[in-house]
Design a protein around this nucleic acid. Structure first.
Lengths: 255, 255
DNA sequence: TCGAATTTGTGCGTATGTATC
DNA sequence: GGATACATACGCACAAATTCG
């Protein structure tokens, strides 16, 4: 049948109705979606239309096909929350550990630093330094109960930390402390943090480290710590979007 | 030809190679992608495989078909920022307008309210009310220079605003003001806001309203305003992730 | 100006392989 | 082993839009 001008294509019609049935609770999570043949009969279309409609819902993450078995409504993943409250850094210490323990999971992380790394342009702009300036780059993998939940790549100009005991975040007297404490110990008082939150498909390297499929959306946060004068640290933080929300909380009305 | 076990399907192979050519610069933004017939000849597959491969890349937002003309590599959009600073709501007024003007664009919005809507479970949990309680639901479409940039669906319990002049956000003496001002005028002092930021593929209805392809990632924010006692408003905010970052800024170190 | 060719978008029927029950 | 279901793949057809001679 040729598409009819002026109304949505058949596969969109079927997808929309299936979505309505799923979101409306008629087809709860875990339940089996009618097979292609059944859908074709129900809606008076060919099985290829059922297929196309199901592909749309699969791309939306609503359903999941299991060959030979059937197509099922995906479980509404219990969203974990990563809290980034306004008061978070005010207390010092490493934010991630406290957050994770508060949710009853055991935090952990691995990190590795590289020194005198020439800073790439995108990072140089954020740190307000010249392209190629030497920096300390530190790669983190954060885990909760042993499973990776967050990646972070941190950049600090050698001009700031060079020759100090806190040159490498994982060494020295303040190992494991947050950026705020480390910077304060060498005379840089951090007064604000800016987080730019975006979302994009996971790169191959990120997907591997996080144990997810390539191309699934991740939440990408560009975080920059500022003293009164200048940015002193910036980091690219990557979180699998499917499992996590990032929660910001701040006060209102104190004027 | 039947799929060969152990290696990726033909349409994935074609999609992967096309993606490589696009990201590698061989096919720059704006350039024309080979037609279905050309691709089929190039890769030795049927035109349906070309079609399926192109559908994958379309879903990823890399290419865009123009009927009768061809398929083109999409322009890499410039990333705009939506600022949600800690001090934002402290000043009153509508946050979106000021933010947008600050970036040199003309803000606008349409809204429509519906009354005595029984609240669905997901929203009831956030508002800490019983499922089915009557609420005012308001749908917003926010625009910058006439182009839609943000959707929002707001929920307010009738138990809070019923019988007051600010029942509908777009009517009354404080039309166009922010939630904080409207609530204060009826004796509810908002003291904090919580925003849970996630990312997921766009639903069809959202993609249509935002003018993006279905399935492209959107940033989904669940925002809830709290008085000292209870949540009084919650909203689902949807922003195309491709074009926007959401920026949070807050102070550090005042302890 | 008009019509033919091209291209995308949509839709149907069929065949085959593999997984599950 | 057989029935069912999903995933992949091909060939064909047609409508609408664009392009070009």
């Amino acid at each position: 049948m040729a598409p009819v001008f002026g109304e949505p294509p058949a596969y969109v019609r079927v997808a929309d109705d299936l979505r309505r049935r799923i979101l409306g609770g008629e087809l709860p999570p875990g339940s089996k979606v009618p097979s292609r043949a059944q859908l074709a009969a129900e809606y008076g279309v060919s099985t290829n239309i059922s297929l196309q409609a199901m592909r749309v819902l699969t791309a939306e993450g609503l359903i999941e096909g299991r060959p030979g078995s059937g197509t099922y409504v995906r479980d509404t993943a219990v969203m974990q929350r990563l809290v980034r409250a306004w008061y978070r850094d005010a207390r010092g210490g490493s934010p991630f550990a406290a957050e994770t323990r508060a949710q009853g999971k055991e935090p952990g992380w691995q990190s590795a630093s590289e020194f005198r790394v020439p800073v790439p342009e995108s990072v140089a702009l954020r740190l307000e330094i010249a392209v190629g300036e030497p920096c300390v780059r530190t790669d983190y993998t954060f885990t909760a109960d042993g499973k990776p939940v967050m990646l972070s790549t941190s950049w600090e100009p050698m001009a700031v930390t060079g020759g100090t005991p806190v040159l490498a975040p994982e060494d020295g007297p303040l190992a494991g402390s947050g950026v705020v404490d480390r910077m304060r110990s060498i005379g840089h008082e951090i007064v604000r943090v800016v987080e730019a939150v975006g979302s994009r498909p996971a790169l191959t390297v990120e997907a591997t480290r996080l144990g997810i499929a390539v191309g699934l959306p991740v939440i990408a946060i560009e975080r920059t710590y500022w003293t009164a004068e200048r940015p002193v640290e910036t980091a690219d933080i990557v979180i699998p979007a499917e499992r996590y929300q990032v929660v910001y909380e701040f006060p209102v009305g104190s004027r």
